[in-house]
Structure formats: structure tokens, C-alpha cells
């Protein structure tokens, strides 16, 4: 084999190896979570509640992989997300396109240089995120079944909405983390769509964001270590 062909094959091999990088990371192993009795939740869940109730906000980087019927491969995007109990959820896609969405109690808004444009009602996420972040698991009781599992340092919550706005679209969603840090969120929609959100550089905050920090105009450094 000539030298040129050798390096060509090395290059092809490297390119081939890089193929899996465009696919989703291997899905996590499922925990055998148990159905939670809201009147008497497990000790670990109570501890998690206590930790979460100390947080007023968090931000992280995300990799979103969406599996939809009719498309063979997942659709991947990356960006930043920030959640604030008072201000809402800001989802900023940076790659492959830039888009900013803001979910709050007034609905879902598309943010652009022209301002904000309301695109619809909150499908139920903001309310649930608020309840979750405030450690108000009990509020889920009337609308969803909650499963909780623990494995080593990790915990996983599975929520199966049974009534309410969220139940119309979402069959279940799972959140995995360690102590107060969330690593993974998966949403299983009723139309068989699966949304898998990996979070990195997760930072938690005791206090709410200011306006400029919330909209990424200024960095924020007072995160809970």
C-alpha cells in the first residue's frame, strides 16, 4: 500500500469513528423506581426535596436529541438553558440554528431581535418545573403518579401525568440526577416522540436571577458549589 493510500485509510477510519459522535449518547440504564406514596415518601426523596427547595434557579448547557416518527435518525441540537422559579424557563438553542424560547406563566414566547412573540400556551412544563424545583412533590399527587429510584449516588424520578394540561401531550417524563444536580431529562410524548436532554455544567443558585443575567446578557457566578 502506498503511503498516500495508508493515510487515506487512516482518515476514512477516523471519519468513520466520528460517525457515532453525531448519534445520541447511549441511553442510561433504567432504575427500578417504586411508586411513591405522597403521604409517606421515601427518605431519599425527602432529602432531595429539601435540597431542591433551597434552589431558586439553575442553568446548564444541553444536548437535545429528538426521536420522531417518520425520521430515521435523532435530531440533535445544543444550547443553554436557564430556569428561574419566578422568571420561567429560557431555552436558547445555539447549534445548528440559533433560537430562543421563553416559557413562563403567561405562555410560550419566541424571543428575537424584534422582541418577544407569543406562540402558545404553556403545555404544562413551567408549572411542573416550579413545583419540582420548590420541592412540592405533593402537588403532583392530584395529577400524576410519581416513581422514585436510587442507585448509588444517582436518583431518578419518573412522572406519569394522569390529568391536566401536561397529560394531553406527555405520556411520561424522567429526570435523573445526583443530589441537587440534574443530568438527564427524557420526555416521552403521546405521539411517540422521545426528547432526550443531557445537561452539563449544571449550576444551581439560591436566589433568583436578575433580568440581565436571566437573558444571558451578563454571566452569573454565585452558584451553589
Amino acid at each position: 500500500m502506498r503511503q498516500k493510500e495508508f493515510w487515506l485509510w487512516i482518515l476514512v477510519g477516523l471519519l468513520g469513528l466520528s460517525g457515532p459522535c453525531h448519534a445520541e449518547l447511549p441511553p442510561p440504564e433504567d432504575f427500578p423506581g417504586a411508586l411513591v406514596n405522597y403521604e409517606n415518601p421515601p427518605k431519599e426523596l425527602k432529602e432531595l426535596n429539601a435540597i431542591l427547595s433551597q434552589e431558586a434557579a439553575f442553568q446548564a448547557r444541553f444536548i437535545l436529541s429528538v426521536y420522531k416518527l417518520g425520521i430515521e435518525r435523532p435530531v440533535n441540537s445544543e444550547g443553554r438553558v436557564v430556569f428561574d422559579v419566578e422568571k420561567g424557563l429560557l431555552w436558547q438553542t445555539l447549534s445548528p440554528y440559533k433560537e430562543a424560547l421563553w416559557v413562563n406563566q403567561d405562555g410560550v414566547f419566541h424571543l428575537s431581535s424584534q422582541g418577544k412573540e407569543r406562540v402558545g400556551d404553556d403545555p404544562g412544563f413551567y408549572r411542573k418545573l416550579q413545583e419540582f424545583s420548590q420541592g412540592s412533590m405533593a402537588k403532583l399527587g392530584s395529577e400524576a403518579a410519581l416513581y422514585f429510584g436510587v442507585k448509588e449516588e444517582l436518583w431518578e424520578i419518573k412522572v406519569v401525568p394522569q390529568s391536566g394540561v401536561l397529560a394531553a401531550n406527555v405520556a411520561e417524563f424522567r429526570i435523573r440526577g445526583s443530589r441537587g444536580v440534574i443530568y438527564w431529562v427524557r420526555l416521552f410524548l403521546r405521539d411517540k416522540t422521545v426528547m432526550s436532554i443531557r445537561l452539563a455544567d449544571f449550576q444551581r443558585y439560591k436566589d433568583s436571577f436578575g433580568e440581565t443575567e436571566f437573558f444571558f446578557l451578563e454571566p452569573r457566578r454565585d452558584f451553589i458549589p
Partner: peptide, 8 residues
């Protein structure tokens, strides 16, 4: 396609 809204 890449917008999370479209996922819904």
C-alpha cells in the same frame, strides 16, 4: 426541525 417547539 431543530426547534424544540416543533417537537410538540
Amino acid at each position: 426541525l431543530y426547534s424544540p417547539l416543533a417537537s410538540f
